[in-house]
């Protein structure tokens, strides 16, 4: 028999993880509260996790300047996950972060989400330093992250509940979002009753509910079978076209990146640095996986990653 209480060290407590960091509390002074949308008349305050500091580049939505992250392992080693990331992303772009496994894609995305603090460099959203998670950055995780104790509708409305939106408006918003992701009539079901593809679509709806400025997606379709993945990719493009959200999408699948992105950023192996930053022509849509243009891009990206055309 073990005695977990006698041996357990005080590890990081989820939730307080963010409070203990330098996140400003609600209604702190010096905090930029930017109304980002009104849901049925009720304003949702955004940028709770950002502190106003003036902007680096007035135009860009997300601004990274010499951004780096170093992990400290339990053995005292330092692992530089990403290094020297200088990058600016404009509103409305669909950016795919592409790179070999372990190159720091998740690390970069987690910094933008506010889950990790940068070790060096600047990271700004709308000119404000990113300090902790906030509803102006919706996140879709690779693993199924829907709250199992809530119905689909309550999951989608979670962000609105946190913002204090009334029950009636939450329901209306959830219904609308379920239609947007092509899943009307499943609001009363629980996540355990859904397939993997449905779960990820609900997760997208949940992330969109607070009308974030950016949608952060970390290999959201990696766990799905090829057919479901393709249909979800198509649907995501459709949602992107309709909502004009800025999307930062992590993948290690070259084909997925070319199919989705308006811009592909390739990271090198660890420590991840930007080795390629390609804007794809918008007139090249829909992107047929068999077209010569697709293949040319594929070759180029494969070379940049250093895998030479394996899929």
């Amino acid at each position: 028999m073990k005695f977990p209480f006698l041996t357990a060290k005080t590890k990081d407590f989820p939730g307080s993880e963010f409070e203990r960091s330098n996140c400003p509390r609600r209604d702190n002074e010096g905090q930029a509260i930017v109304p980002i949308r009104s849901v049925g008349g009720k304003r949702i305050e955004a940028a709770e996790g950002t502190l106003h500091r003036g902007s680096l580049d007035a135009g860009a939505l997300i601004e990274c300047r010499e951004l780096a992250h170093v992990y400290h392992t339990r053995l005292g080693e330092e692992i530089a996950a990403v290094r020297d990331i200088t990058l600016s992303i404009d509103a409305g772009e669909f950016v795919c972060l592409l790179g070999p496994s372990g190159c720091g894609k998740t690390t970069l995305l987690n910094m933008v989400a506010g889950f990790l603090a940068p070790s060096a460099g600047k990271l700004r959203l709308n000119g404000d330093d990113i300090r902790c998670p906030a509803p102006d950055r919706g996140v879709v995780f690779q693993d199924y992250s829907l709250f199992p104790w809530l119905t689909v509708e309550a999951n989608i409305a979670y962000g609105l509940l946190m913002a204090g939106v009334s029950a009636k408006r939450r329901k209306a918003a959830a219904t609308e979002l379920l239609e947007l992701v092509g899943l009307p009539h499943i609001g009363a079901q629980y996540p355990f009753e859904l397939s993997g593809g449905m779960k990820q679509r609900v997760a997208i709806a949940r992330a969109l509910a607070t009308d974030p400025a950016v949608l952060l997606m970390d290999e959201p379709f990696a766990a799905l079978d090829a057919m479901t993945r393709e249909s979800l990719q198509r649907q995501l493009l459709d949602i992107w076209a309709r909502t004009r959200k800025t999307v930062l999408f992590v993948t290690h699948n070259i084909g997925e990146a070319i199919f989705l992105a308006s811009r592909v950023i390739v990271l090198s192996a660890r420590p991840g640095r930007i080795v390629e930053d390609i804007r794809l022509p918008e007139n090249f849509r829909p992107r047929k996986r068999t077209s010569p243009e697709f293949n040319r891009l594929y070759e180029r990206l494969a070379k940049a990653i250093g895998v030479e055309g394996t899929e």
Partner: peptide, 16 residues
Amino acid sequence: TNPLFSRAAASLGARG
């Protein structure tokens, strides 16, 4: 608490 859930909740505005 599953850190995935607390991250999801934090990014949806849950605090305190």
